[in-house]
Nucleic acid binder design. Structure first.
Lengths: 224, 224
DNA sequence: TTGCGGCCCGACCGATCGGTCGGGTATCGT
DNA sequence: ACGATACCCGACCGATCGGTCGGGCCGCAA
């Protein structure tokens, strides 16, 4: 918050200390959760003294929320264009799913951080943490987008009448959970989760499921 | 471990201290994770002194693993009968899904605990924790059961040729994640996750998705 | 040259962490 | 009556926790 210049040459300069802290904290929080990571550890990983962290972030909780908000902002940014356009809803849903998976696979800690953030909401989402409202806003924006798309598809008759929220839950489970499943998922799949190959496979599996389970096939108007 | 008598009158007597500890620890670990819960807190909730916990469990990690193993054993026990029998694979899959959801909904901390356990495996599954192999065994048993069923159904031509592991991941995401999603899921669904009504709805949603997305419909042999 | 603010640090604080220790009590078999 | 054992406790230990404090270094404005 309150970055003096909006970082005009963002991709050229070496990352600022603040960004470096966010980067290492993201990895650590994803790996061991909010309670499992100490500020000392973050500082060491960032190559700073512990006191310096408190110059950039007022508290550990605020650092955590900043990490979460940055990630959610990036995901929201990636997802929004997939929803726009005049393509039929089924095609936009495909693009949205691809974009979500790409966003989750782009940085390794992403999925795990999101899922952990879900669990720790009890401790943060109270009004006692106004800093967390930025993250909350991005979540609402993402949900609003996909819910609107599902509703539009259902109204047009190209999606089955499945409950929107339930479909979203299934979608999250099939994507976020999958890429957060770590060693368990790798053991089950028999290989890395984030390799280009594995990501492509996952996209295909999910979209097949979606086409059969949600989209009303044009050739078979059979409806239960 | 090493319970003197195997608790012959299990359902009559008030819960032993050991079980009481497991009960409260399950709730606390589910709510705030391994690192977020202190032994002091567990002891207070169980109505014991902190030292007494170490009489029943050698360390905090062992208590955590005992909680996890007890839960996994119960789930495995519930799931196994659903796989047995001579019914067609599609019907057994339905029963398995129902049993899994019932098991997750039976106790509120179950789903969250499982998902958290997944994340914390890095810290435990090393051979440095032989106490955790009991939990690992149950996981393997559960996975083996559902994977065999999926393979059998695919071989018989009644399931589409979706990857077994990927289908399992989708199944876990659609069930475990859903019931672990806490306040987020309740906000999205607009009500409690664990009410009898919500559980029934979730079962129906998932099975519909499964029937359309996985099972080859008898009336529409259309296979794209 | 003199300030001043951004950035960083080592030293320190009270609190809490997991875990140990010695001892107390109640119940058992002998 | 006598250990032995199970169970429980308060007091305590060293380590680490999040966070504060005072000050040092550097680049810029006056």
């Amino acid at each position: 918050m309150a970055v003096p210049p909006p970082s005009p040459a963002a991709s050229l300069a070496p990352p600022s200390s603040r960004d470096k802290i966010l980067d290492v904290a993201e990895v650590l929080f994803a790996r061991r959760g909010f309670e499992g990571v100490g500020m000392r550890e973050v500082a060491d990983a960032a190559g700073l003294g512990k006191s310096s962290l408190f110059h950039h972030f007022r508290s550990k909780a605020q650092l955590y929320l900043a990490v979460l908000e940055r990630l959610l902002a990036q995901i929201d940014e990636r997802l929004r264009p997939a929803l726009a356009g005049t393509m039929p809803p089924a095609e936009r849903l495909d693009r949205w799913t691809d974009a979500l998976i790409d966003a989750l696979a782009a940085r390794e800690p992403a999925a795990r951080l999101l899922l952990r953030g879900l669990f720790e909401d009890d401790a943060f989402d109270a009004e006692a943490w106004p800093e967390g409202q930025g993250a909350e806003r991005h979540i609402q924006s993402i949900l609003q987008g996909i819910l609107d798309l599902l509703r539009e598809g259902a109204a047009a008759g190209v999606f089955r009448g499945a409950s929107g929220p339930h479909t979203v839950q299934t979608l999250i489970g099939a994507t976020v959970y999958h890429f957060a499943s770590g060693e368990f998922g790798e053991g089950l799949l028999g290989g890395a989760l984030l390799s280009a190959d594995a990501v492509r496979r996952r996209k295909a599996e999910i979209k097949t499921f979606l086409h059969q389970g949600l989209v009303v096939a044009a050739a078979t108007p059979r409806g239960e």
